[in-house]
Design a protein around this nucleic acid. Structure first.
Lengths: 198, 198
DNA sequence: GTCTATATAAGGATAGAC
DNA sequence: GTCTATCCTTATATAGAC
């Protein structure tokens, strides 16, 4: 039976608010009010705002690691696993329309702030890039697995960006369909067949 | 002979700083110092920070309108014109690696701030969407011109996002090459032939 | 049109009582 | 571990002299 500590609450609420309002635009007061603790209490758990960001990034990393691990465990083929990744755009469609991709928008914001934790945020991209890479290798595309992974990452980022700007469900649906087709085409190319783990 | 007014300077510097540092993260003091005027002087030209943002968006809109008008005037075929759009990723590659796409990052930031001028920022996307749409119509793809335009917009946004996160020139180059190929493939599809203006 | 104050508010951070 | 009170800095914005 797992106890919910104040620290956990802070990180969970900060995670959500950094996503919905942006890191800089979220104040200690915002987070404190949402939980129902005082601002002062904050500094018992975290020395600085940057420390909270670090904890939020760690949390997101763990979340995403768990997610892809689940896909690895549940889904039979790399093709289906890659499609699971693509389907995030549908599954999280409402949030993405409102706030964009949590990874992309954080990375972008920290880049503009020239924030010391930019690398941490980009590690989130790195996690998906590496995982997708594995799937393409398993699909028999070891020669250009890196590029294919980055390509798919970029496409989904682009769709998230336009979903946020245009609020267009039909566009999202159509792009997801297109990407599914693209994955199938990659799988059908010569060189296929490797199925080993990564 | 065109006089450079203080107002023009403010808008020009704000445009650059909003791009490089973000809108919220840029203060009046930042802009004032860069130009060499006092903070107080600011309010003679603009009542609020939001007013400056509006002027910056107008400026960007005019810039981009001029740019596509130049392409319309200079380039012979819609295919080449579309490639001009794609090539922004190369031409502005260094800036994009450092700060992302000026349109996408602004749209994304304003969405998180729930800023009243979100529509203005998205009008920048709209401008390119409409222009690209025209090019695809001219390419004979009137049936899905809207989608093709959004698709290409999304792809270039995705590349800009990853360029900013990963700083990878080779990836940008490869994606641009891919998109060029894609445009050529669209042009070669049946239904081609219309060349009228939009 | 530009400047020098100055008002006012908000945010990050600290000290110390409980 | 949580609270209140307070400090310090920065930011938007205003008033009024030049």
């Amino acid at each position: 039976m797992k106890e919910v500590t104040t620290r956990d609450q802070i990180v969970a609420v900060a995670d959500q608010m950094f996503y919905q309002q942006g890191y800089e635009n979220t104040s200690f007061a915002d987070i404190a009010n949402a939980i129902g603790i005082s601002r002062g209490n904050f500094y018992y758990h975290f020395k600085t705002k940057d420390d909270i960001l670090e904890a939020v990034i760690d949390r997101r990393l763990q979340d995403r690691k768990d997610m892809v691990a689940q896909w690895d465990a549940d889904e039979e083929s790399p093709e289906i696993r890659i499609c699971k990744f693509i389907d995030i755009l549908i599954v999280n469609g409402e949030k993405i329309k409102k706030f964009g991709c949590p990874i992309g928008t954080l990375s972008s914001e920290l880049a503009k702030l020239n924030h010391p934790n930019q690398d941490g945020a980009n590690a989130l991209f790195g996690l998906f890039q590496a995982w997708l890479r594995c799937q393409f290798v398993a699909l028999g595309r070891e020669d250009d697995a890196d590029y294919l992974a980055a390509h798919l990452l970029a496409r989904s980022q682009g769709v998230a960006m336009l979903a946020n700007a245009f609020q267009d469900d039909e566009f999202i649906r159509r792009e997801v369909e297109q990407m599914h087709g693209w994955v199938a085409a990659q799988a059908a190319l010569p060189g296929r067949g490797a199925t080993g783990n990564c």
